[in-house]
Nucleic acid binder design. Structure first.
Lengths: 339, 339
DNA sequence: GCCAACAATGTAAACGCTTACATTACTGCC
DNA sequence: GGCAGTAATGTAAGCGTTTACATTGTTGGC
């Protein structure tokens, strides 16, 4: 039924070593022989057995992408960038979500190990110890947006603090003094950083940092919706809302609309991530642009560098800068240089 | 460096066969022995080598998901559903996009073969011949939204015709008589079916089917935008636009807005797919709901059935029904039973 | 007490490939 | 013409498992 290298070798009257050499372009082979082997292989529909090859070479030509969740455009974009890069390097992409649960993450790590030549991990809840405990020291790893500062790992992080700071500063510069924030998921790294960027900007402008203006959220539209409802009944109503991501901003706007509060006239709204829809909403959502699909590309390029360079690969911790995107929802149309 | 079954066996004073039996729960082992092996394995951080195992068993515990593209929420949702199901069955997910190019699809197929126990293929451009030529007869395959009617394959298709028909009929019932369509990508299966559903509904209502009302598109927001611009300059302006997917509908709405044409008052707009944002837009986008993430789940469940049942698996061609979702963009608020 | 039956474990072949090393057959140089 | 050097090919060991079959040890029925 299934055709192996041996079948090809027999039919071509050569040894399996020669067939192997043809397929791997390793070692010298006559043009004539090569051609004969290739033809017969095609006729026989021969494909090298990936497992056998992996076993022999201890390479899998596959890299793993471990994500906290597979929901929403953010991850979809990361996957897209990753796939693109992986194909370019003639590798394969093993994707898995980890459900944010520590045990499941460990299981996922262990299970990936041995199946991949390298691993990109995007999981806010992971720490260096878990990583070291569950992965062989030799497996190249790139951390994407993880809360691990350890210089023993390559990592890529979004400049959450800077981005949030920039957006809030922008609002302040345009005379907003009561700015509420809808926070991200409790304990989430991005969430905390965005919050601290928000606070820093307020402090810097000598504005009060108050728990009364900080509303819980979990990055879903629903949470944004609920938070906005709460904000609306505040005695001294804020003039601006900074949502920790676009989904929540969208939810918030939809709540404001429901209550017939004009955006941005009565309340300005801004988000974070700049997901594609932000551009197409009405009003267009002001946001902090994160080069998401680029993130996937960068992570994988770094990973392949690590895989290739092996031991003399130098690890780096990079911070990806964000960019302020001003649309209508924050009430400041003009293109001006706020920084 | 790397620890193998042999290391565990030596340390535990048993043969490798016993260790193997412990890990696979195949064959009898004393509780005492099992415990000793397990403990030592844990201490040694032993993980069975996946390649060796695959070579030996010719199973990979991995299934492949071949998508035409990785762009947008649609695929992100399919992947999510797929991942969820795959985890449930303790398998892994190898994802790849095929770039819609025939050669690349063939390459992807060939490369997947041998790495996976089964394959879900979503690729409008593929035909039965290509499939047969590049895949071993024994590999379970589920076609997702492919234009292959062949009963020798399991397949899942969206009821594009029915969905489009239903939406256009709905518009007609509410007194729209000039309804433009923004078509999907040329030669694309979904695109053609949605177009024919549109035409059927018009014909059924004795409305003219005219090329003047059919505008090219390619499923991107940009295309929707451009098409709407063209529609706006039409001498006898349509009162409704049916976009072949939500992205184009969103692009169209944004073009109309730019020209200060009221939606739905002046022109009603409807889409297809019911991607999550549709709900949060203003106006909410009327659309044809496709249970996307469910699609991923269903496809993988079918695949696992095929993998498990092996030879006595009975292939089926299923059509997934869609559902009309009426929001504001088509101008008919009331919840009524249109069918 | 013997033997059958079975439980627990071991032995070794096979899975399909890569690759170090061995072999063979040419070349051209002195 | 012999020999070194090299190009082309072959041989066989190993990669880490699984598993059919063999071996050993125990049990219980007669």
């Amino acid at each position: 039924m299934k055709v192996t290298i041996k079948d090809v070798a027999e039919r071509a009257n050569v040894s399996i070593a020669t067939v192997s050499r043809v397929f791997n372009k390793s070692g010298p082979v006559t043009d004539q022989t090569r051609h004969r082997v290739l033809t017969i292989a095609r006729d026989l529909r021969y494909t090298p057995n990936a497992s056998a090859r992996s076993l022999s070479t201890s390479k899998t030509d596959t890299v793993g992408l471990l994500l906290p969740d597979l929901y929403g455009e953010f991850f979809s974009e990361v996957i897209r960038g990753a796939d693109q890069t992986v194909q370019q390097y003639h590798h394969h992409l093993l994707v898995s979500s980890s459900h944010n649960n520590r045990n499941e993450i460990e299981a996922a790590l262990r299970v990936m190990r041995g199946r991949v030549d390298g691993l990109v991990i995007m999981s806010p809840h992971i720490d260096a110890a878990t990583l070291n405990a569950n992965l062989p020291k030799s497996l190249p790893v790139v951390l994407l947006n993880c809360y691990v500062k350890d210089s023993s790992f390559d990592s890529l992080n979004i400049d959450n603090i800077g981005g949030a700071h920039q957006m809030v500063k922008h609002l302040i510069q345009h005379n907003h003094t009561r700015i509420a924030i809808i926070k991200g998921t409790e304990q989430n790294y991005d969430a905390e950083e965005r919050l601290s960027g928000y606070r820093a900007a307020l402090r810097e402008a000598n504005l009060e940092v108050s728990a009364d203006l900080e509303f819980p959220g979990d990055f879903t539209e629903e949470a944004g919706f609920q938070a906005a409802k709460k904000i609306l009944v505040l005695p001294h109503r804020p003039t601006a809302i900074f949502a920790s991501n676009d989904s929540m901003a969208i939810g918030a706007i939809s709540a404001l609309r429901e209550s017939e509060v004009q955006v941005p006239e009565e309340i300005a709204v801004a988000g974070f991530d700049d997901i594609p829809i932000s551009k197409y909403m009405k009003p267009g959502l002001s946001s902090v642009h994160v080069p998401i699909s680029n993130l996937g590309v960068l992570a994988l390029e770094r990973l392949f560098a690590a895989v290739t360079e092996k031991d003399n690969h130098i690890k780096k911790q990079d911070i990806i800068t964000t960019e302020l995107v001003v649309r209508e929802s924050c009430g400041i149309h003009e293109t001006n240089n706020d920084d």
